[in-house]
Write a protein that binds this DNA or RNA. Structure first.
Lengths: 228, 228
DNA sequence: GTTCTGAACTCTGTATACAGCATACTTGAT
DNA sequence: ATCAAGTATGCTGTATACAGAGTTCAGAAC
């Protein structure tokens, strides 16, 4: 893009700390995509991004390949990577799979989760409610994700959690845009309340129903603003 | 600069054709892992493999990162990549997810698949039967995979197909080892027969049942020979 | 004015070079 | 003989160099 990448304050210097550089770059890139800095369909300019992150093209390209396998970017033969663009059908498909996974996980969670583990989810939920009251959308959003991830984790199935996380990551960018109005937001909060209640009651059917409904609503919130 | 013609001690002549080198390396690596050339837990020596494939370390490393995101190898901080080792629980978890996906896909397929598409699956099945008769395990194995992939594809959900393929790939190596005896093999063939019948009858419940049973059997066939 | 062509520039794809860490090996002392 | 310490070696992680494909823009021809 023609945006002057390093324009901001002089200290735009990004210090990559001594965790794996690979992971650091990966997180940076994911953020850039999710937050819309790299809009869907745009090419990833290795030289520019590398300079911006203060690393050479080599580890950057490796991270990009990783993202490609994750499905966040697409590899185009002599043109490098472009940020993957999801059409309506694709998003709907992903949500359908997500529904399947969450419902299954929820049912399993009702069977095997410990009371303590459920209490932790409840704690996250309460925290999220606090964010809702003070209208802190970002924190709310993150806790929301954490709760869904947490419920899936209750099923104690690594593969299930992994697949769920992968799909959730792809949808993050979509959802990030979805700033629902006050009434819809309130609705989502109410759904969450019922979700936790069903979980605490270990009522698998009710939990599955509300999880399914919740995802349908999520779809309703984002489906406009997608092409095709 | 070296020519990419490689004569190797094992006679594994490798000639990379003019598709994307990236994809070519990827396929080679997957094969090496699935076929057990690179046993679980072993490190991937970039220098050696690169020489064997006739490519430098750069594109090879990129392919490895891709595989890491696919979950076939694991990245260990200063030790490179090691072939991922799946324990019994992990395999069981994957099979559980696979069951969920296939059953869902099967049900959906019964609703929306065209007669022609189902006929194509039937054709694959017949072909597989021929392989069974002449005891061609490898061809049987490949058609087997293709049939399951095909049934999932009938659901017309890209995300579902993708996730399924990913899990299937991971299990390939496990299943590759599983050389079941004649009676079990006959059993598996019978299950497939019933599977196709249920699909043609568009009997979602029966199809789900048999798909579930089939995967349970698959687990029975491979569960010994796994640690932990 | 339009279009074709070619040259310069940009960016990707691949190879090579280099530094740092980890492990194995050797050598010397107890 | 055992153990410790230093050294050598191998491999990974990162940067840089180079070649080729693609794109853009300008200039010439019509």
């Amino acid at each position: 893009m023609e945006r002057s990448g390093i324009s901001d304050t002089q200290g735009m210097e990004v210090r990559i700390e001594r965790q794996s550089l690979h992971d650091a770059i990966l997180n940076r890139l994911r953020d850039m995509i999710i937050e819309g800095h790299l809009p869907p369909g745009s090419r990833l300019n290795e030289g520019q991004i590398g300079a911006q992150l203060g690393v050479s093209r080599t580890p950057l390209r490796e991270a990009i390949k990783f993202l490609a396998s994750e499905g966040l970017v697409e590899l185009v033969p002599t043109r490098g990577a472009v940020v993957k663009k999801f059409g309506a059908k694709e998003v709907l498909d992903m949500i359908e799979v997500l529904r399947m996974l969450e419902q299954h996980a929820g049912a399993r969670a009702c069977e095997i989760a410990s009371d303590e583990a459920i209490a932790e989810i409840r704690a996250l939920h309460d925290e999220m409610l606090a964010c809702y009251r003070r209208q802190d959308r970002l924190a709310y959003y993150k806790l929301n994700q954490a709760i869904h991830t947490g419920i899936v984790a209750l099923a104690d199935n690594g593969s299930l959690s992994e697949v769920h996380a992968r799909l959730q990551t792809r949808l993050k960018r979509i959802r990030f845009v979805g700033h629902e109005g006050p009434e819809k937001w309130a609705n989502a909060v109410a759904e969450h309340e019922e979700m936790i209640a069903a979980l605490e009651a270990r009522d698998a059917d009710r939990l599955a129903a509300i999880l399914g409904k919740h995802l349908t609503q999520a779809w309703e919130r984002v489906k406009d603003g997608l092409d095709a």
